[in-house]
Design a protein around this nucleic acid. Structure first.
Lengths: 197, 197
DNA sequence: GTTAGCATGTAAGGAGTTACATGATTTT
DNA sequence: AAAATCATGTAACTCCTTACATGCTAAC
């Protein structure tokens, strides 16, 4: 049974797919390169690296044993195994509800170049739907119920709604781009098919 | 020893300060009226209400026992005690680092009308500093290190940076407004003082 | 009468933070 | 020589989610 939407596992496997890195550097990459909101602590990262090692998705190379160049720091560099690559592909292609969440979406989006076009579409549209639902719920609540309405609460809601609307517009652009690309490709395929016939 | 920045406790006490409500409704208010990102589950809310009751900050009135109007639903309505009001004031005036976080900031901001002006300033400026640090870290990482740079990663970073910059501009406006208010008040105080003398 | 929503809870498990602990290396 | 940062880890604790469980009431 595949663990449910696990942004951290995906982040680790996705980053290691680019190049082998050690834990300390991995943390920085997760914090800075992926759309990570809260900082990742070592108390979370290191145990997880060991767990993924146990699972057979990654392997550790301790560089301190290597007689390489002069006095290197002790580093444990992790890299993907064949199973890890499979696992990564599997996680990436699962564009279900778990992928619409705030944390998961960022990581998945950053790894879109390893994701199939149909899955990219599912993730983008799922995320958009989720945001639209949220928008509707907040708007309705502010309309129907008589609620807290001091200036600060109103300002917070205004800014929040504006931010969500902005992200929806962004997603719409991305979806358009994605569609255009798919169209180009199917157009090229058509040409090739005609060539074949 | 005061528990560290606890957005949920603050949210509950803050909402109950307006009016007594029952758990089910409280959840909606937390989700819709405060800047809450992830949904609050009952498995979190109800145990916490009991805990706050044990702490003496709130009390429960079971309306099903009241011989009031015809056949009301069973509701357990909570309201603040005197200790709860004190606790709320105490939490609100602690504008330290815990208040700069993504979750905490939203709740605190929504409750700003119950917060003193100096604390409001501390919270706003602290939040701004935190965002500026984050911005600097990401920008530096994207400059210095050669990193993932496919189009999706770049687009995610671009959008992320834009969002943070936007929030900083928003905070700057709010800080300006706050300063102007403070100035007005001190101006009025000056007049009164002159009047006194 | 049946579905949908209201309303309150419990138990188990997982996940992450915090604080602690250690030591090497680079920079000032 | 001291301070900062690199680098890895452990243990306790807290918090939250998930899934389960129950029963009432309004609407269709």
């Amino acid at each position: 049974m595949a663990r449910r939407g696990d942004a951290l596992e995906l982040a680790i496997l996705g980053l290691l797919a680019d190049a082998p890195v050690h834990g300390y550097q991995l943390r920085k990459q997760v914090d800075h390169e992926l759309g990570w909101t809260r900082l990742l602590s070592y108390g979370t990262l290191y145990p997880r690296l060991r767990q993924l090692t146990r699972d057979g998705y990654i392997v550790a190379d301790d560089t301190s044993n290597e007689p390489g160049s002069t006095s290197r720091r002790r580093r444990i560099v992790y890299r993907l195994t064949a199973e890890g690559k499979e696992r990564l592909a599997e996680l990436l292609e699962d564009g279900g509800p778990a992928a619409w969440g705030d944390d998961d979406f960022g990581v998945r989006f950053a790894l879109f170049s390893r994701t199939s076009s149909p899955t990219r579409m599912r993730v983008l549209e799922g995320r958009r739907t989720r945001l639209e639902e949220r928008l509707a719920a907040v708007q309705e609540a502010s309309r129907a119920r008589r609620e807290r309405s001091d200036s600060y609460t109103r300002e917070l809601r205004r800014y929040g709604l504006e931010s969500v609307e902005r992200e929806i517009r962004w997603l719409n652009e991305l979806i358009e781009r994605e569609r255009a690309q798919t169209f180009e490709k199917s157009f090229e395929n058509d040409k090739e098919e005609k060539h074949d016939s």
